[in-house]
Structure formats: C-alpha cells, structure tokens
C-alpha cells in the first residue's frame, strides 16, 4: 500500500516538475560525489577512553574543557558547549568506549530540513552550520535521527552547536583536531578509503571486531564509521534507525507539491466554470 502510494506521488511529482521546470528540490549531495566525501573511522576496539579528543575539540573551538570522567553506566551527552563525548559501556566483552558526535550523514536530515541552508553538506563531506544563515527555528534538531544539533537556549544570539569535522582545517588540507590528537582510534580519509581500511582491520584481526561497519548503511550511510568488538546495539546506538536516508521520507511530499500547484487550481477553476454555467442555465429555465 505504502509503496504504491509513493510510486504514485513520484509519478505525478515528476510530471509536475517537468511542467513547471522545478528541479531544485533534489536532495543535497548527489551520488557520484558522496563516494569522495571525507569522513572519520572510529575504532572502539582501540580507543582507550582517554578523552584527549574531547579536550582538544573544546580548545580548538573555544568551548569549556570537559572535566567529568567516564564511568560505565553514566551517559554523557553532547551539549550546547560540547561537540563530542566519549562514553563507557559495560558489554559482553567487558568495558568498551564509544565516541559520539555528528555522524556527517551522506544525506543529512538536518540539511534537508534547514530552510535557509544554514545546515549544509559540503562537497568535502563535513556537514557544517553557517551562523549568518540560521534563523534558529530548530527544525534541524527535530529531524536529526541522532539528536546531534544542540541549541543554546540561554543566549540572546544563540548558536547551534555540533561537530563540523573541523571543516576549516580540512579545506586547508589538515586533519580534524580530534584525529590529529588521537593515536590510532580515529582515522581520517575519504569514505572509500575508510571502508577499505575498516574491512582490512576486520579481516586481519577477526577476533577483535564484529563483522560490521556501523555507518556504512545506517541513515543512508554516514561520514563517521564505527568498528567495535561487540554488536552496536550494546553501545547505546538506537536500533530503530532505518537504513535508507531520512530526507527520502519527505521526498514524496515535496515531489507532489509542484503537481498540486498545477492540478488543484485547474480543478478548482473547472468546478467554478461548471457551477457557473449550471447556475446560468437554471436561471434561464426559471
């Protein structure tokens, strides 16, 4: 039922778009580009939970340096003053660390939600937030499946806080600060390189990893990729998330808009004319 409806909407959507010539509502990030997006591979099996990346991140972005220590069972969260966190989980393989920050989705829900393109998927891969465009509507927060963007409610000129993969450094050919700080647990490269590297690690040390790269498929693929010694469901990841991209959920609606703009007025005008002539006729007969 749902498939049929979607197909139907798509079909009339496409017709409508050709009629109006309106094609700009395509999703950000086209297919050939996303293979060359840059990203970061995070390896839970290597991470020692030292929080050096957290501290380096805070310093690099003028944020207060986090002082609280990791503790299994205590969930620390990113906030309006913290872009990344490392958490500790008690798992079937003992204590495992996980780092959380923006996933830099291939097809980011936040960017497709943003009505001013303040949230923006750059061609290099990072999803960045542009202050001069943002109007603070917080629709990006509603839409991000990972609950990443954080809003500064106590400021009169609030910012959206989230990891931008140190975009400024990347355009200058440098690595993100966290990757630079960390030993081996964080690895920077194009998404293709990262997946190859992850596969290699899994093949070389099968006892260290479960055979899955988190981020390869979830939410349509993400720029951050995760390797771990235990299934990701043990590490606080939301198991409900879908594997297809989130912007695709609104596509059928968006595609139907141009056709509604063509069909509904035509229909209304048609009915209007029909009722008018009917009325005239009635009057004549009277």
């Amino acid at each position: 039922m749902s498939i049929n409806r979607r197909k139907f909407f798509k079909a009339i959507g496409v017709t409508g778009m050709t009629v109006i010539g309106f094609t700009s509502s395509a999703s950000p990030g086209s297919k050939d580009e996303d293979t060359e997006f840059h990203g970061v591979l995070y390896d839970s099996s290597i991470c020692i939970g030292c929080q050096a990346c957290e501290k380096a991140c805070a310093k690099a972005h003028d944020l207060p340096v986090p002082e609280d220590e990791l503790q299994a069972g205590v969930l620390r969260k990113t906030s309006e003053v913290q872009r990344c966190v490392v958490n500790s989980y008690e798992t079937s393989q003992g204590e495992v660390y996980v780092r959380n920050q923006c996933m830099h989705c291939n097809e980011p829900a936040c960017a497709s939600a943003c009505l001013t393109q303040a949230m923006y998927k750059t061609k290099e891969g990072p999803v960045i937030w542009r202050e001069d465009k943002c109007m603070g509507c917080r629709y990006c927060m509603i839409s991000c499946p990972f609950d990443v963007p954080k809003f500064d409610y106590n400021s009169i000129n609030p910012k959206i806080q989230k990891c931008d993969m140190c975009y400024d450094r990347i355009v200058q050919g440098e690595k993100p600060v966290c990757v630079e700080t960390c030993g081996d647990a964080l690895f920077f490269g194009t998404r293709r390189e990262l997946i190859a590297e992850a596969r290699k690690r899994i093949a070389e040390w099968p006892e260290m990893y479960v055979d899955k790269i988190y981020g390869e498929a979830v939410a349509g693929g993400t720029g951050y990729l995760y390797l771990a010694p235990v299934p990701h469901t043990e590490l606080g990841f939301n198991k409900q998330l879908q594997n297809s991209s989130y912007p695709s959920l609104t596509k059928s609606f968006l595609y139907s808009v141009p056709s509604v703009f063509v069909l509904v007025p035509t229909l209304l005008l048609g009915i209007h004319e029909a009722t008018k002539s009917k009325q005239n006729k009635n009057e004549n007969h009277d």
């Binding site: 999703s27 497709s112 009505l115 001013t116 109007m135 603070g136 917080r138 000129n157």
Partner: peptide, 24 residues
Amino acid sequence: LGKPWNIFNPLIGNSFGASSVLFL
C-alpha cells in the same frame, strides 16, 4: 525563533533551502 533577524533569509536572498518542508 532563536535568530529572528534572519527570518527573511528563506524568503529573499541566497538561502533557499528548497528541499525543506519547512521552507515550503
């Protein structure tokens, strides 16, 4: 809105987020 002074961004200027439902 957190930054109401930017409210005209989606209406005029160069910031059309045309893939956004909220934009429509």
